[in-house]
Every structure is written in structure tokens, then in C-alpha cells.
């Protein structure tokens, strides 16, 4: 090999192009479902974490510490190789059946053990991070506003929903966007459990025709492009922070 010469023909055509396209579609899907699941899980985790001291709060703290302080790759391997095997036989059989409704163009199927383990793993891992970012955003709301709302006769739930959370979201939006971008990028680790996303497909091209340079360059550009689009969309349509007080 003499220096950096790109030969895109081995990547942008035929089977490799098809692989890249389906890999990209898979990355987008696992990111979207993982992010949705993480957001969904973050709500009760946050609720318990800021709730009264007791078993609820301890559970939330344990959840957060466990998932934030162990490697995501190890967690994915656990969900795929250990936890999946512990599911009831009937569930696994059902997952392994053909599900037309879960099939996307290009042979991408969402009802597979790999996709489900990756979505679940990303969901619980990032729920812990999202909950902590939101909690920091909540703590940044001046305590006087809570007192003002109390003195107007508002209850705890109304205060949380109408005063604290909207401001917490505004305060924490930048770091939250960072977490959603991390989720997208770390979905590449799901290649370790055989999910056919971008990284997996890039390595497949490399072993298929040895166009490693072009394959990795294409993969990098796909991640970069997705990242830029996600970031600008999230910042554009996300809540904005109103100046303090």
C-alpha cells in the first residue's frame, strides 16, 4: 500500500453499499428506540431519586451507581449472553419467529435478540445518566420559586410539573443533548453482541474486500453526519434556558 489513496469503488457499490445502508438504518433505529427507552426509564428513576428517603431512593441510587460505574460493553454482553437466556422459553421462541411487522427495508429486523438486547442495554445505561443530568437541572432552580408556588396554594405535583421540570429541562438541555449523542455513538459497542449496525458492517466490508480505509472513513462520516443532524435538531427544537431570575 502506497500512502493514503482512496478507492471508493469497493465501498460505494454492490454488497458493501447495501451493508452500509442497512447498518446505518440499524444504528438510527437502535439509537431512536434506545433513547426513547432511556427517557422513559429516567422519569421513575429521577422521581425515586428526588423522593423521600427510604427504599425507593436507595433503589434509585443503586440503579444509578450500578449502570454509571460499569462498562457499557460489559453490560451489553451481560444482557445478550446471560439475561436473554434467562427469559422464559416462550418469549425467546416468540422473538425468534418471523415478524413481518418488525422488518424494515433491506432485511433489517428489529425483533431480534441482538436488537432487543442493544436497545434495552442502551436504555437502562443512559436512563441513569439522563436522570442525573435532570436532577442537576432541578437543583439549579432557585428554592424560592417552590416557596412562591406553595404560598399560592399549589401542590407538590403541580409544582414539579409546571415549575420545576420545565426549568430543569431548560437548565439541563445541553448536557442532555450530549447524552443522547453519546447514546448514538456508543451504540457502536453493540457490534460486540453481533448487532449489524454501522461498525459491524464496516468490519464486514473490511474482511470482504480489504477496503479498510474507505470502509472506516465511510463509517466515520455516517456517525459524524448523524451526530450533526441530531445535535442541531435537538438544540433547535429543545427547550431554551431563560436567564436566571
Amino acid at each position: 500500500m502506497t500512502g493514503l489513496t482512496f478507492d471508493w469503488a469497493g465501498v460505494l457499490g454492490g454488497l458493501p453499499l447495501h451493508w452500509l445502508a442497512t447498518g446505518f438504518l440499524t444504528t438510527v433505529c437502535v439509537t431512536a428506540t434506545g433513547a426513547a427507552l432511556a427517557t422513559l426509564f429516567a422519569v421513575p428513576v429521577l422521581g425515586l431519586r428526588i423522593g423521600p428517603p427510604g427504599p425507593g431512593r436507595w433503589t434509585a441510587v443503586a440503579f444509578i451507581e450500578l449502570f454509571r460505574n460499569t462498562p457499557l460493553l460489559v453490560q451489553l454482553l451481560f444482557w445478550y449472553f446471560v439475561a436473554y437466556g434467562l427469559l422464559p422459553r416462550g418469549w425467546r421462541d416468540w422473538i425468534n419467529e418471523d415478524h413481518g411487522w418488525a422488518a424494515l427495508p433491506g432485511g433489517v429486523n428489529l425483533a431480534t435478540p441482538e436488537f432487543l438486547a442493544a436497545t434495552w442495554g442502551l436504555g437502562v445505561f443512559f436512563a441513569a445518566f439522563l436522570a442525573e443530568e435532570l436532577r442537576a437541572g432541578l437543583l439549579a432552580v432557585p428554592k424560592g420559586q417552590r416557596e412562591a408556588a406553595l404560598s399560592q396554594g399549589m401542590g407538590s405535583w403541580a409544582i414539579l410539573v409546571h415549575i420545576l421540570l420545565p426549568q430543569a429541562l431548560g437548565n439541563a438541555w445541553q448536557p442532555l443533548v450530549g447524552q443522547y449523542l453519546n447514546l448514538m455513538k456508543l451504540s457502536s459497542l453493540a457490534t460486540g453482541i453481533g448487532l449489524a449496525e454501522v461498525t459491524y458492517q464496516v468490519r464486514q466490508i473490511e474482511s470482504y474486500n480489504s477496503h479498510a480505509l474507505e470502509a472506516f472513513a465511510a463509517g466515520t462520516l455516517l456517525y459524524l453526519g448523524l451526530s450533526v443532524v441530531m445535535e442541531s435538531a435537538l438544540l433547535q427544537f429543545g427547550p431554551r434556558r431563560r436567564g436566571a431570575r
Binding site: 432552580v141 432557585p142 424560592g144 420559586q145 416557596e147 412562591a148 408556588a149 404560598s151 415549575i163 420545565p166 426549568q167 431548560g170 431563560r242 436567564g243 436566571a244 431570575r245
Partner: peptide
């Protein structure tokens, strides 16, 4: 009962 605070405590958002 209306309450007015030293720091105003308006809802910033």
C-alpha cells in the same frame, strides 16, 4: 393569603 418575598421569586420560565 398572598405572600411577597424579598427575592421576588418569580417563575423564571
Amino acid at each position: 393569603i398572598g405572600f411577597v418575598f424579598q427575592q421576588f421569586n418569580l417563575y423564571a420560565h
